[in-house]
Amino acid sequence: MRERRWETTTPLNFGQALAVGDRLATLGLQPVSPSNDVICYVEEWTVESLDDFDQLDAWATEDVTLVHVRERWRGDFFLLSGAYHTVYQRHQDIGTYCSISHPWRIREVLRLHDQRAMFWIGFRHAHSFIRVRLQTQVIITPGETRGDAERARWLDERRAAFLEAITVLELPIETQVEKNMVVLRPADPIVPFFCSWPDAFGPCQFEYNTPDAFEFLVPASKLAETFNPEPAGVRAYLTGFSEAALAEFQEIEPGARPAYRCSVHCPLDDLPEVQNAIGPHGLLYATLCEFQTHAVLPDAEDASAIIGIVGVNGQFKIEARLNQAPLHEEAMAPWLGRLIGHPVVYAPLPAFV
């Protein structure tokens, strides 16, 4: 589900970040104690070698994914994805996962959706998939009514954008509008098909699966061609592979920047040590407090809120994520600033990382 997100405007030290938890406790909320275990999510941790992951040996880790990052890439996506698929076939097993992302461009001129969208071609045990995601100019989450005056345009643009991808990929997917929402369905109801990342107007992402490991290689390359002649940011995601397999993947078009993402189980107090391990550019975040906004705004719309600690480059900040805004837009940042004790600014996350 899409989220609304704000973050503090100035860097904090870890003591100041923990003090936000104390502040929330005085309001009757239940923040995580510094000694309690949390799940710390690590992203964008650029490494020199695969052995650098040993720096997290002091903690339990899971969902470890190595990401090959290629920036301003110009190449043949069919050859690149085919090379990853070839190595994947040699090392595939239950629990292994490989996907490659590439931007694509929507030809129709849109006002509410970004012309730049993203797709992933992926391989899991016994099947492959194509995933298509759209990005909107603003985030209006399920239940919010800010976009109702232009709902017809939102729905028309959403259908048109999805139809472009469906047409290029030659997928048997139907698009409809039901109950003022865009709905996608495969023509064959037994096909594994998933819609996700919903906002107030329907899904922003779909995933179509097939048992044929080769089926999407050519169609995906055609969708990638819509982004020409602009250089592309391309990423490959590798999960569940042995070190030998990862070394073989690394030989595909050498020059990609390797970066890890994973989950780290640790006491909240250990976040500075985790940050040191993934420095200087690795990003971490962990939940400090979860609550329903009725607990502090009894007269407003209820929403689910998460206050989290974010760490990067030796500094920390506080983020607030909500499934919808309980107050009018102009009141949200001042209210969250008073709640947290630090000024905040609206800061939605990137759509495609």
Rank of each mutant, 00 (worst) to 15 (best):
Q324A: 05
A277P: 04
C40M: 10
R151L: 02
I130K: 07
V191P: 02
G311R: 08
D22S: 15
D37C: 07
I307N: 12
C40Q: 13
A320F: 10
H125A: 07
G75N: 03
Q89A: 09
D93I: 06
P172L: 01
P326H: 12
A277Y: 07
V42D: 04
T287R: 12
G82E: 15
E62I: 07
P348C: 03
P254W: 11
W59A: 03
L18W: 03
F249W: 09
P31I: 06
A320T: 07
R158E: 13
S196F: 04
Y97D: 11
D51P: 07
P254S: 01
I166S: 05
V182R: 01
D188G: 04
G240P: 03
P326A: 05
V312P: 03
P231I: 02
T65D: 09
F193M: 01
H85V: 13
V38Y: 00
S35D: 10
P189C: 09
E225R: 15
V264W: 03
L284K: 08
I252S: 03
L29Y: 04
E157L: 05
N228C: 13
D269Q: 12
R74V: 15
L171R: 02
Q135V: 14
T65W: 05
H127F: 12
P350Q: 09
A300G: 09
E157N: 00
T226E: 03
D299R: 13
V264A: 00
Q135T: 12
R70I: 05
G95L: 01
E170V: 13
D299Y: 15
Y88M: 05
A333C: 06
A220S: 12
A295C: 00
N228K: 15
T293E: 08
T175M: 09
I318T: 10
H294A: 12
D22G: 15
L283M: 04
I94T: 10
A160G: 14
A165P: 08
P350T: 08
L110W: 00
I340H: 01
W335T: 12
V38P: 05
A60N: 12
T86F: 11
R151C: 02
P11E: 02
P334F: 05
P192A: 11
T65K: 07
A200Y: 07
H91D: 06
C204R: 14
S49C: 08
N13V: 09
E225M: 10
R133Q: 14
F227L: 03
L288T: 05
G28R: 00
F14G: 08
W59G: 02
A149N: 11
L169Q: 06
N276C: 14
I309K: 05
V109F: 11
L271M: 12
R23M: 03
S128R: 07
E48G: 13
L18G: 11
D212Y: 01
Y84K: 02
F194N: 14
G75W: 04
E319Y: 12
L336R: 09
A161H: 11
F216K: 02
V32C: 01
E150M: 12
R235G: 00
E225W: 13
P272V: 05
L163G: 15
Q135N: 13
I340A: 10
Q89C: 10
Q137N: 10
G28M: 05
D63G: 09
I278D: 02
V296D: 01
T10F: 09
A300F: 13
R90I: 01
C262L: 10
L163K: 15
K179V: 06
S33R: 15
A277Q: 07
R146W: 15
D156F: 03
M332E: 14
L288Q: 06
